[in-house]
Design a protein around this nucleic acid. Structure first.
Lengths: 229, 229, 229, 229
DNA sequence: GATGAATGAGGGTTCATTCAT
DNA sequence: TATGAATGAACCCTCATTCAT
């Protein structure tokens, strides 16, 4: 099944002098590039861990550096400042989601099947990965980062919602869905996933949740219904 | 309909050490008490505003004091430290939720009606009040405050969930609910509310959500269904 | 033997309404005076305890008040500020020393006997009382309180030294003392006492000192000698 | 005569984590090390001046930094906190005393001569240097720093006393000392030195003391005596 | 490029002092 | 007179950011 593209981040880095095709005759440059990409990835990974554990403000770049195995100053070679690091982290991790969802939209299979795939996708590619933490960060810190919220809304959410809505409307028109609730509020589809992410972060110690089961139960609710009459 | 008890904090105020019967003949003492209660409330209100706007770590007690119209040091007459202020804020605001929910449990009306009342209660007493912000805070900062999460789980959530589950099980047995999804995952009932709170905090600028409509649509989904066959 | 005048504190107890001299014509005024004296004494006693335990700067007036059984503000009814309290404390406790010493000067007994009395006086009236702590305070904090040091020098030390020197010179002239060292440096007489006070404050846990024995041994040294030839 | 080793702190500096042989071919690293040692010394010197002038609690690290010509935060690169700075200051300055005293113990010269050397050593290496201030600090603040007092007792005092006692006992057995007072209370040897340090700090403005003369007079007292009979 | 020592603004907390009751 | 809540200046310590090596 669909898999969300991994972030091989060839994307421009502050201060990075790029250029020079991969086949070029000065290998050291490539080594450098690879090493640099590695550094960047390492910093992002470390940042995710630290930001997740402590939140944006309480995270110390010192700890990020330590975790990434580099010196504190090095972070500033790859990111303008703490805020940039945070924002790029979220962007990098969430961007790939869109493509996947939009791909689903164009598939011509029964919606119910798509919904099941969606659940599976969410569980495997979000809930069981660090992307879950990124979403948690987005939820926690988003209100203090309007730019980030806007990016997320424009580049990710609105497109996912549009894709979902198109999908669901089609299904509704075909009679696959009796109740138009999810057509009007496609957010409902994601609701159990969101709740599961939050629950896990807060209460897993006391009571675990079977995300997959909950999401499936919810999908059942959405799709197997018949209108009351 | 039920209304959540306001917190006029009759509870002992830090710093008031020697009790004195409320009826005592020294009016000045009472004046003091009233003023103290007022201060405490003012601090809590200011703290809620600031914590909501900036998060726990980024909030400056200086700003809380300014907003409450008092000196910075005064905060320490009512709360041990920043963390205590934060935790008491959450406790004070969320504790009253429980009673209300548990009252609903024992009502003997059709579940569907109760569900509608629940939606109304949530919208009126949570979503349109500052309690919404407290829940957002709980979601954002909870992971860094295990004690608080535990309190919230034990004192609030687990009891609400138990009440809901009892209610829903009864409804399911009576045939009011065809699908047992919500019996197994009562969190689903709250999911749209949670999502609405998060959405509002992040994306209201771009697209508003009609919470009441969404929640009602979801309740419809949960209750008007018939099993597939 | 001589005894240093006690600071006749019928030391007041917080909230204790005390007696009422049977003879007084306007009792209330006297009561007030007595009570005030009691308060003042209580504050001084509490201050001594706290200053001794923590030093001037680290002592909190709050603790002094608590220990004295009064409210913090009350201290300011009896002393201008923290520094005044400190200085008055030292003055009050050390002033009575002078009279005692000067009395010794005029006694017409063998110096050796006087010296023994001095040792006894020091042990009983200083070392085994709180005056020891006051001297320790003087030593510790004096450098930061030039006024206090000056007072102590002018009102206490210089007079004690003058008295001692007169005494010792007489003894030297009479041949009671062979070596004139103590005539030139009367401080030598006090040295073991000072050292004992300091030692006790710092190292008593590890090794105790028998002050009386040490001081007597030292007096022996000073007086039983014969010039080398 | 013996001279107390200066502390040019070759000891590891906080913050220098990865060792690197001193002979290594990277000069910049050595420059750094030298500069760091310099900083550390500068901070210690500034700290001594400030602590001496104001006492531990009243000393502001801001002032220490200013005096050392560095930024406030820099102090924390070399010392964990204010207390560590204080304790390390005392340790650094007093540790070297021991070796010197113990060296004297094993010398095989008449005790009287050793005593004179001791006086000279004290005057030159303690009284006329900043070590005098360190001892004053130890006396003033020691009671609030039990750890420090313990260190000083175990590492310095008890060893000095043991050395002195051995020395004096030998002298007593040889008949060089008639009275065994100083054997039983070796502290007596130091008493005039201690008193001089305290006197200087408090009363030098009013009356100076000739330490060397006083100590010599005292030594005379201790050694030139003959038992009374 | 990479390092990490140095900086210094910023914020939590304490506590001497005041003053309304 | 006595109280203790309120004040706000002061100070320790942290940490994002810079820059010499």
């Amino acid at each position: 099944m669909a898999r969300i593209a991994q972030t091989r981040s060839p994307r421009g880095v502050a201060g990075t002098r790029r250029g020079r095709p991969a086949s070029a005759a000065r290998p050291s440059a490539n080594i450098r590039k690879v090493r640099q990409a590695g550094r960047r990835e390492a910093i992002l990974a470390a940042a995710l861990a630290e930001f997740s554990a402590r939140g944006f403000t309480a995270t110390r770049l010192d700890d990020v550096a330590k975790r990434a195995g580099i010196a504190k100053g090095t972070i500033y070679l790859y990111f303008r400042d703490k805020e940039s690091l945070f924002q790029e982290l979220i962007r990098t991790m969430l961007s790939p989601l869109v493509g996947t969802i939009e791909a689903l939209r164009d598939a011509d299979v029964p919606v119910r099947m798509l919904a099941d795939q969606l659940v599976e996708l969410f569980v495997r590619e979000v809930f069981l990965t660090r992307r879950k933490d990124v979403i948690r960060l987005m939820i926690s810190e988003g209100p203090r980062f309007p730019k980030l919220a806007e990016f997320y809304y424009r580049e990710v959410l609105s497109r996912i919602i549009a894709a979902l809505r198109a999908l669901l409307r089609r299904a509704h028109e075909r009679g696959e869905i009796a109740n138009d609730a999810v057509v009007r509020f496609p957010q409902l589809i994601a609701a159990p996933g969101i709740v599961a992410i939050i629950w896990t972060g807060l209460f897993d110690r006391f009571e675990t949740i079977d995300v997959r089961a909950m999401m499936k139960a919810h999908v059942d609710l959405l799709f197997t219904q018949r209108s009351a009459a």
